[in-house]
Computed example of a mutant assay.
Amino acid sequence: MDNNVYGLVRTAANLESLAHAFTNLGWEARTSAWDEYEVECTWCQINIFDSGGMPTFAGVVDPARVDELAGTFSTLDIDYEIELYDRAGDLARRLRPGQR
């Protein structure tokens, strides 16, 4: 499946600590480039990277579980914005803290 989820992470200290925080929740994490990290679980795989000084991510999530991805960021006490796209490439949902 092509990437269907993109987003911003506004309050992460740095990419390495963010990747490590995911591992503390049972996710797998590895360096995917010089300063990028790939984190994944059975239903989601995202690449976290710096984009103009802002931690950003792109990857694949099971659309039925995008709320769980938002919950993971909330558990980590991270301010986030998630955009989920459908198979046609149209924006299906935008999630921010406090929204459902």
Rank of each mutant, 00 (worst) to 15 (best):
M1W: 12
D2W: 00
N3R: 09
V5P: 05
L8T: 10
V9I: 15
R10I: 11
A13G: 06
S17Y: 01
L18V: 05
L18M: 13
L18H: 09
A19L: 04
F22L: 11
T23C: 08
N24M: 13
L25C: 14
G26T: 14
W27V: 06
E28V: 02
E28P: 04
A29C: 06
R30S: 09
T31R: 15
S32T: 14
S32K: 08
D35Q: 13
E36G: 01
E38W: 03
E38Y: 03
V39N: 09
V39H: 10
E40K: 08
T42P: 11
T42R: 12
C44H: 05
Q45T: 08
Q45Y: 04
I46W: 00
I46E: 01
N47Q: 11
I48E: 11
I48D: 10
F49Q: 08
F49W: 06
D50S: 14
G52Q: 02
G53N: 01
G53V: 06
P55N: 10
P55D: 05
P55S: 11
T56H: 04
F57W: 09
A58F: 07
A58W: 01
A58C: 07
G59Q: 12
G59A: 12
V60F: 03
V60T: 09
V66S: 02
V66T: 13
D67W: 06
L69R: 02
L69V: 10
L69P: 01
A70R: 12
T72Y: 09
S74N: 14
S74L: 15
S74T: 14
S74D: 15
L76E: 11
D77M: 09
D77C: 04
I78V: 04
D79W: 10
Y80T: 01
E81A: 02
L84W: 09
L84H: 07
Y85W: 00
Y85P: 00
D86K: 00
D86T: 02
R87S: 13
R87D: 03
G89P: 07
G89F: 05
D90F: 13
L91S: 05
A92G: 04
A92R: 02
R96G: 10
G98D: 07
G98H: 11
G98I: 08
R100N: 00
